[in-house]
Amino acid sequence: AELMTLTIVKGAQGFGFTIADSPTGQRVKQILDIQGCPGLCEGDLIVEINQQNVQNLSHTEVVDILKDCPIGSETSLIIHRG
């Protein structure tokens, strides 16, 4: 298992991935745009978004944080894999 830092840019259609609740937090459910989120894999656990720890937040709260990220700006994700 490892922590990885990824930088992704939000496009007009969003980030290009969906998230779902899991017992340990929000996991990447589906990658819709592989080019839009390079390095991200289905099943990755989202630990931080732009230096904000999201592991204890609800699904709705994490979705809102992602929605609030401006289109075209870089967003830093720390994910836990494995």
Rank of each mutant, 00 (worst) to 15 (best):
A1V: 15
A1W: 01
E2H: 06
E2Q: 08
L3R: 12
L3T: 13
L3P: 03
M4Y: 11
M4G: 05
M4E: 06
M4D: 12
T5G: 05
T5R: 04
L6W: 04
L6C: 14
L6Y: 08
T7N: 14
T7F: 11
I8C: 12
I8L: 14
V9C: 05
V9Y: 10
V9A: 07
K10D: 00
K10H: 05
G11T: 12
G11L: 06
A12E: 10
A12I: 05
A12M: 10
Q13T: 10
Q13E: 13
Q13V: 08
Q13L: 08
G14R: 07
G14I: 04
G14D: 15
G14E: 12
F15D: 05
F15W: 12
G16Y: 04
G16C: 12
F17Q: 00
F17G: 00
F17K: 00
I19T: 04
A20H: 15
A20E: 04
D21R: 09
S22A: 15
P23K: 13
T24R: 13
T24I: 05
G25R: 02
G25S: 03
G25P: 01
G25T: 02
G25K: 02
Q26G: 10
Q26C: 10
Q26P: 14
Q26R: 10
V28Q: 00
V28A: 02
V28I: 15
V28W: 01
K29I: 01
K29S: 14
Q30G: 07
Q30T: 06
Q30C: 03
Q30S: 08
I31S: 02
I31R: 02
I31H: 02
L32W: 04
D33S: 11
D33E: 07
D33V: 04
Q35I: 03
G36L: 02
C37M: 04
C37H: 13
C37R: 04
P38W: 07
P38A: 07
G39N: 10
G39D: 03
L40C: 01
L40P: 03
C41Q: 12
C41E: 13
E42D: 04
E42T: 12
E42A: 07
G43C: 03
L45W: 04
L45K: 10
I46G: 01
I46M: 15
I46W: 00
V47A: 14
V47I: 04
E48V: 07
I49A: 04
N50T: 01
N50F: 00
N50D: 07
Q51Y: 07
Q51R: 09
Q51F: 08
Q52G: 06
Q52L: 08
N53C: 13
N53E: 10
N53Y: 08
V54P: 00
V54K: 00
V54Y: 00
Q55C: 06
Q55T: 12
Q55F: 14
N56E: 15
L57M: 02
S58M: 08
S58Q: 09
S58K: 03
S58P: 04
H59S: 10
H59P: 07
H59G: 11
H59D: 04
T60E: 09
E61L: 10
E61I: 01
E61H: 09
V62W: 00
V63Q: 07
V63H: 01
V63T: 04
V63S: 06
D64F: 06
D64L: 05
D64N: 08
I65V: 13
I65D: 01
L66V: 03
L66Y: 00
K67S: 13
K67Q: 04
K67A: 08
K67M: 12
D68G: 09
D68A: 05
D68F: 02
D68C: 06
C69H: 02
C69A: 11
I71K: 06
G72K: 05
S73F: 14
S73L: 06
S73Q: 07
E74K: 03
E74V: 05
E74W: 08
E74F: 15
T75F: 11
T75N: 06
S76W: 05
S76A: 11
L77C: 11
L77T: 05
I78G: 08
I79D: 01
I79F: 10
I79W: 01
H80K: 02
H80M: 03
